[in-house]
């Protein structure tokens, strides 16, 4: 199997200076994800699932350990990679889906979704076509495609967000509870798209509010609950 990510003794905590307090989040987290593998993160509220994903994306700075990412430019340790390198990888190889859309005023839904394709060098018309298809797949009504999502409902915004985040297949994709606030149809569309990406070789690490939705995609479960068995193969696990 082609490795995509090797996480090695990763540690994260927060030093809140004004409270003179250190908040540990996790330490000694080690696991790998290969191309086409889907790893489910689990653990109680506050176990550090979001923190781990944000640390891998480098929105948070790790305290120790390595995050070896097998990029198309070779292996790079995301724990120590320069900011510009991280920014570049975020545009090209590493995706992150959250619950929230950062809608920008006066940017149409279809343009928001097309943007990753445009940045990857697609022609404007081809990018817009693909964007409209993606919006349709997630159940966004055609009369909303050219509208500004700033005024959309939470559910509609989340569909635009997902269409955008999943339009360009990436090497590594992280998902933090992407199904929150989605209706059943959009949830099905999401799972279908994740299956497609998995088959195309995207490595995925995700936190899901309803893991049942993605049951059939899961290869491995990593439990962040302190003192839990750190990794379980999918076959031995009853969810």
């Amino acid at each position: 199997m082609t490795q995509v990510l090797e996480i090695d003794r990763l540690k994260k905590g927060f030093s809140l200076h004004h409270l003179d307090k250190d908040i540990p989040a996790f330490e000694d987290v080690s696991f790998s994800v290969a191309a086409g593998e889907f790893v489910l993160l689990k653990g109680a509220n506050g176990a550090g699932k979001s923190t781990l994903l944000r640390t891998l994306y480098r929105s948070y700075l790790p305290l120790a350990g390595e995050i070896r990412f097998h990029s198309s430019h070779g292996v790079i340790d995301l724990a120590r990679a320069a900011d510009v390198d991280v920014a570049h990888l975020r545009r090209t190889e590493i995706g992150f889906v959250t619950q929230f859309l950062t809608a920008r005023p006066r940017v149409r839904a279809e343009a928001i979704v097309a943007e990753p394709l445009r940045l990857a060098g697609w022609e404007p018309e081809a990018a817009l076509d693909a964007a409209r298809k993606a919006l349709a797949t997630f159940g966004v009504k055609p009369d909303l495609w050219a509208a500004y999502p700033t005024t959309f409902s939470g559910g509609e915004q989340q569909k635009v967000n997902l269409a955008r985040a999943l339009i360009l297949p990436q090497k590594l994709l992280m998902l933090d509870e992407p199904t929150a606030s989605l209706d059943a149809n959009a949830r099905r569309a999401l799972v279908a798209r994740l299956k497609e990406l998995k088959d195309q070789g995207t490595a995925m690490i995700g936190v899901f509010h309803h893991p049942d939705d993605v049951m059939h995609l899961i290869d491995r479960i990593v439990d962040l609950t302190p003192d839990a068995v750190p990794q379980e193969e999918r076959d031995d696990v009853a969810l």
């Binding site: 790790p62 305290l63 790079i76 724990a79 120590r80 990679a81 320069a82 390198d85 570049h88």
Partner: peptide
């Protein structure tokens, strides 16, 4: 203490 970052390797 956080880690010291490397010089850019991908962006040339």
């Amino acid at each position: 203490m956080t880690l010291t970052l490397d010089a850019p390797r991908i962006v040339e």
